[in-house]
Design a protein around this nucleic acid. Structure first.
Length: 884
DNA sequence: CCGGTCACG
DNA sequence: ACGTACGTGACCGGC
């Protein structure tokens, strides 16, 4: 056996691929509107099996048409099947083209199905004695072909997950030999192929009979041995059907094929044709793979020319006068503490690289980086700025930040990896960090290796190569101003805030922690007594058992994995059993302890007693920031116990104040402005309480009548709902009113605020036409699901279309305010410390307090001119807690 | 590594 | 009929 023959059932794999990607179908269309999901899935399968099996010979067999010897034998064979969707049938010619471009033969034969071609060739191969055979299909019936020389791989969930059937595996799984599969099918028939077997015989009976008799022939010869009178009657009655089903299920292994084993030689990818094909299909990831594989052969990665920097050649860097690409490599994610492990710098064909970060301090290097005249192109300006700042180098004149530009062009699929982003924009001669360094536990960076140096040169080079194109794309999106006036500027403002950090008093946290610890222990004991046993309260699974099985509390909601024990459920159950309230209390305090006491203590820097968060500037889909290590945007405030955590956040100097200013209802003001709704604008212009006004309007109260707190609360919920892209169900869930009521409220709302209604309709239409929506500052979010056939995906996209311009414009506004703020306070001792979406937090010396009380709100409310005023409220105190 | 839960706007 | 509020991050338990 010197050869390995791979036989692929083209139709069934195409079907599987199509339905595996069914819900994502609309994400897979090429520029000319062709659906490509099945082509894509098919190719993924090809990649996997070619790689796993390393075959010498390959064939993809297809069905030739609807009419086959089976339909001639039984007219209804495969009858009643839904017509193949056009979204799939249009892809078949391209799948065949793909297969050919990959150097693989295809074949189809009138009157026969792909199964028969495969069966026939497998038999020929087995008989010749030269071959090992592997069959890949989505149809489990083909497992009848397994033998000691042939294995059958059946696709499971997707198309790349395959289950391998050997004769042994068939017996274990199905309880019969491979050859007996057709005997089973003879008896039970096949619903999907629409032919009957014997009445009342299904899987179990068929299996039992075949295990007893071996074959249908033998069964009928010994029909008197069948136990069960009815069963015997059915068998006798339906003998013809059983024999016909047996024939239909049997793969023809003697089909009159006009192709021979010698024609199946696997030639491998035709790179040129395949490149062209992938480009037409818009398959960027496959293009990337193609070029990486290609590079592996040509050793392109190591062929790049670069000079290793040494003390003696540093002066060569003086050649860069106008522009340079620079990449600073770090070994860890957290750039506040990560070691620097190398850098690459250069332009065009001149590249320099080193694994000695101390060379950064050499004047030839630092002069370049701090120069106001030499433009820098890089990836992640904030990270680079902080890394260099730690070496006392102040990075200046960043022109192109590839990470930021990529994020603005398309927030989805953005990545922190240079290689990944480069691939996304059509530049493939670079590997990803994962490919070079490994991932998870296996990740390891060998900074001494030539591969390392080559890799970071490739990063710098990718940045250099892509910056013109990406700037052009930015311009086409009308996003150059967004980039230059907002995003690149805020990167440095954020860097400064992160470096500055905020002081957290460890003593305060520890004192609170020991109190919490006692409370937790107390509540824990009480819960154990109430439960009558000890268990892990933190485990929803164990807790569910206690509450819903042992104590028999009513099950109000379930999750995918079991009983739901979330707050809303437990709150409803609390009156039924005291243990429930205790669990709620336990949860709350355990959360405070683990996330906020222990969690924060872990990240206080020893040298300065501060925490230095990192704002992720290129993560959210709306343009907001997020905050990690630690997250300082979700410090408790809603409950008094949690709010106490804020007492630990203190100014750096004794006697200073923590000063906080927040935009009041910024999202609703943005809504009023961009919808142009006159009624809502009037409310804000008149300085009214918007929730009360909304309540008056939708509940039809006279203007002199006071709005009850309950009605105001409901109106507030509706206002929120509108911002989120409302549905009556969502509103009813969130407020406890009925769905019908919710529906009425929404209708009333749209009557009172017709501009809002029109905007919501228009923005969804816009999204359908353009497949994206944008904010005031032209921040863009693509909504690939907006025309999806799936109700769920489409509805989600519609809500997103309504919400993103509002949430995103609010994000634009506070970013502008922060940039202006940075200027406004640059000569003061006051420092901007944190941003929490609609609020800014500062530390302020007492002698500047009177100044900032006016200055900070005025900078914030003048960030942008809307059709309604922006309102800012300020609070201050000796800790963050006291700034209320 | 994922799902449940809960902290924030 | 479908089964839903928008945007995040950290921790825990359990696979």
């Amino acid at each position: 056996m010197t050869k390995k023959l791979l036989l692929i059932d083209g139709n069934s794999i195409a079907f599987k691929a199509f339905y595996a990607l069914y819900t994502a179908m609309d994400k897979f269309t090429n520029p000319s509107g062709l659906h490509t999901s099945a082509i894509y899935g098919f190719n993924r399968m090809l990649d996997k099996v070619l790689d796993d099996e390393q075959p010498t010979d390959v064939l993809v067999a297809f069905d030739a048409g609807k009419v086959t010897f089976r339909t001639k034998m039984f007219a209804d064979y495969k009858g009643g099947r839904a017509k193949t969707p056009t979204e799939l049938s249009e892809q078949f010619p391209f799948i065949k083209e793909l297969v050919n471009d990959r150097g693989i033969a295809t074949y189809e034969l009138p009157d026969y199905e792909a199964d028969d071609i495969i069966g026939t060739l497998a038999k020929q191969a087995e008989d010749s004695g030269d071959y090992e055979v592997v069959i890949v299909t989505g149809d489990r019936d083909l497992t009848q072909l397994t033998s000691d020389k042939t294995t059958v791989q059946v696709s499971k969930k997707g198309v790349t997950e395959l289950e391998t059937y050997t004769p042994k595996h068939v017996e274990e799984k199905l309880g019969v030999k491979p050859s007996q599969i057709i005997e089973i099918k003879g008896l039970k028939g096949d619903n999907s192929d629409n032919y009957p077997g014997v009445e009342k015989v299904g899987d179990k009976t068929a299996l039992k009979l075949i295990q007893q008799f071996g074959t249908i022939d033998n069964l009928y010869q010994n029909i008197d041995d069948v136990s069960g009178k009815k069963l015997k009657e059915h068998l006798i009655q339906d003998e013809d059907q059983a024999r016909r089903a047996h024939k239909l299920a049997t793969i023809n292994r003697e089909a009159p094929i006009t192709i021979s084993l010698a024609d199946l030689n696997y030639k491998g990818d035709d790179i040129d044709k395949l490149t062209d094909f992938y480009e037409r299909m818009g398959f960027k990831s496959f293009l990337a793979k193609l070029s990486v594989d290609d590079n592996d052969h040509s050793e392109d990665q190591s062929k790049i020319e670069y000079t290793v920097l040494t003390k003696d050649n540093l002066s060569e860097l003086d050649q860069f006068k106008d522009e340079v690409s620079f990449h600073l490599e770090m070994s860890e994610e957290n750039y506040h503490i990560s070691p620097l492990i190398g850098f690459a710098v250069g332009q065009g064909d001149h590249w320099y690289v080193t694994n000695q970060p101390e060379l950064l301090k050499d004047p030839h290097v630092s002069r370049l980086l701090t120069s106001e005249t030499v433009k820098k192109n890089l990836f992640d300006a904030k990270r680079t700025f902080v890394g260099l700042y730690r070496q006392s180098i102040i990075l200046k004149n960043v022109d192109f930040d590839m990470l930021l530009v990529s994020y603005l062009l398309n927030t989805t699929n953005n990545s922190n990896d240079v290689g990944t982003v480069a691939h996304l924009h059509g530049f493939y001669n670079i590997k990803t960090d994962e490919e070079v360094y490994g991932k998870g536990a296996k990740r390891q960076i060998d900074a001494q290796s030539p591969e390392f140096l080559a890799h970071i040169v490739h990063k710098a080079k990718a940045i250099d190569q892509l910056h013109d194109d990406m700037f052009k794309d930015l311009d086409e999106h009308n996003q150059t101003t967004l980039y230059r006036d907002i995003e690149i500027k805020i990167a440095f403002v954020l860097a400064k805030m992160e470096i500055n950090g905020i002081k957290v008093d460890a003593g305060t946290l520890e004192a609170m922690g020991s109190k919490f610890k006692e409370r937790i222990a107390e509540i824990q004991q009480t819960i154990y007594q109430e439960a009558g046993e000890e268990f892990n309260i933190g485990s929803p699974k164990q807790l569910g058992k206690i509450l819903f099985e042992k104590l028999r509390l009513p099950i109000l909601k379930k999750t995918k994995t079991g009983y739901s024990t979330s707050v809303d459920v437990l709150e409803k159950l609390a009156p039924d059993a005291p243990i429930v309230q205790n669990v709620l209390d336990y949860r709350q305090i355990a959360k405070l302890q683990s996330t906020y006491i222990d969690g924060l203590l872990k990240v206080i820097h020893k040298d300065d007693g501060k925490v230095h968060t990192r704002y992720l500037q290129t993560l959210t889909q709306t343009g907001r920031l997020s905050s990690v290590d630690p997250n300082l945007q979700n410090i408790p405030i809603r409950t008094e116990e949690g709010r106490l955590i804020r007492q630990a956040f203190v100014p750096t100097q004794p006697g200073w104040q923590i000063f906080s200013s927040d935009y009041s209802q910024i999202e609703l003001r943005v809504l009023a402005s961009i919808t142009g709704d006159q009624n809502m604008q009037e409310a804000f212009k008149e300085g009214e309480d918007i929730h009360a006004t909304t309540a008056r309007r939708i509940f039809g109260l006279p203007s002199n009548e006071a709005v009850t707190p309950e009605l105001r609360r409901q109106a507030k919920a509706v206002n929120f709902g509108i911002v989120y892209g409302i549905s009556d169900f969502g509103l009813s869930q969130n407020t406890g009113i009925t769905r019908k009521q919710a529906h009425q409220f929404i209708e009333r709302y749209f009557e009172e605020y017709p501009g809002v209604k029109k905007y919501m309709d228009d923005i969804v239409k816009f999204a359908r036409n353009h497949r994206y929506v944008e904010t005031i500052a032209h921040r863009r979010r693509y909504l690939p699901d907006i025309n999806s056939k799936s109700f769920n995906l489409r509805s989600f996209a519609e809500r997103t279309a309504m919400n993103t311009p509002i949430q995103g414009s609010a994000a634009d506004i506070i970013k502008i305010a922060m940039i202006n703020m940075n200027e406004a306070i640059k000569d003061m001792k006051t420092k901007m410390l944190l941003q929490v979406h609609d609020e800014l937090i500062f530390e302020v010396p007492n002698d500047e307090l009177e100044t900032v009380k006016k200055l900070i709100p005025s900078v914030m409310d003048s960030a942008i001119k809307l059709d309604v005023p922006l309102k800012v409220e300020s609070h201050w105190g000796k800790t963050w807690y006291d700034a209320k």
